[in-house]
Nucleic acid binder design. Structure first.
Lengths: 138, 138
DNA sequence: TCGGATACCGAAAAATTATTCGGTATGGAT
DNA sequence: ATCCATACCGAATAATTTTTCGGTATCCGA
């Protein structure tokens, strides 16, 4: 568990929001679960642009903050399911709004960001928490 | 200029939004400008919880992305003013929504975050982009 | 001429976050 | 017995962001 050196201001709403769902893959995970991908292995398959470990970690943080809950079915085969709590569901429209803003302005932003590219012309790791369109992370 | 090694997915709206206004102090700056703090020295005074250099840097990124514009008055004394572009203004309601969500849930989040505190009981550097209430960063 | 206010910027260091690599454990199927 | 799928976790490393420290330059007023 990482111990931060500089305390964050949890009286600021924006800081709180960013802490809870601002991680690189958290919106993606929330999106995927809200669409019905509930089992860890499903999430790992859907969100193929990062490693399973990363998803596990961000998922456990989402649990810590009460965004998702975990149901473990007893017996075998191992069966675990995550789902959004009411708190988690309340995040979805916000992510949607963020996504809409970004989608609307992405071309404009892209233009102004090109100087900042990587050296090689590698492909990005797609995030695609496409809360607007159909396809999930993939 | 930092050259990133891993390309980001600028086709994802959320990634775009986070890139443009997701920095630690950017919401604070946008908020302050939207309230009328326009000169750099004003911003430095208002947002006293981080150093002037940090504000300058984040401000220049906001300029790069067309969120704010800079007007330089000729002659003396030196007079520079920043203001929000239409793009910048379109961010304000989103920050407001983020802030409202966080404010509503901050107590809940705080409880679940206490294990993660710093060793000493230092004060946080307040962000307080209080887009809800009156006080600006401070 | 010196000190202060203005506005800004480079670059090292520190802090934080993301990624990788490998490990644990369970039980079913071959 | 061995392999596979399930689900998870520790810890080192890499990547990125934030912070600090110092610097530039202009002109005014004392």
């Amino acid at each position: 568990m990482y111990k931060r050196k500089i305390k964050e201001d949890l009286d600021c709403g924006i800081v709180v929001a960013m802490k809870v769902f601002g991680g690189k893959w958290k919106p993606c995970i929330i999106d995927a679960i809200s669409r019905g991908a509930k089992r860890p292995s499903e999430l790992h398959r859907e969100i193929a642009f990062t490693s399973p470990r990363v998803i596990d970690m961000q998922l456990s943080e989402l649990m810590d903050f009460g965004v998702v809950t975990k149901q473990t079915a007893p017996g075998f085969p191992l069966y675990v399911e995550y789902s959004l709590t009411p708190l988690g569901k309340s995040i979805v429209p916000i992510l949607k709004q963020l996504g809409e803003w970004g989608t609307k302005n992405k071309d404009f932003v892209k233009e102004r960001a090109e100087w900042q590219s990587t050296e090689s012309d590698q492909q990005p790791r797609r995030n695609m928490h496409q809360l607007l369109a159909d396809p999930i992370c993939q």
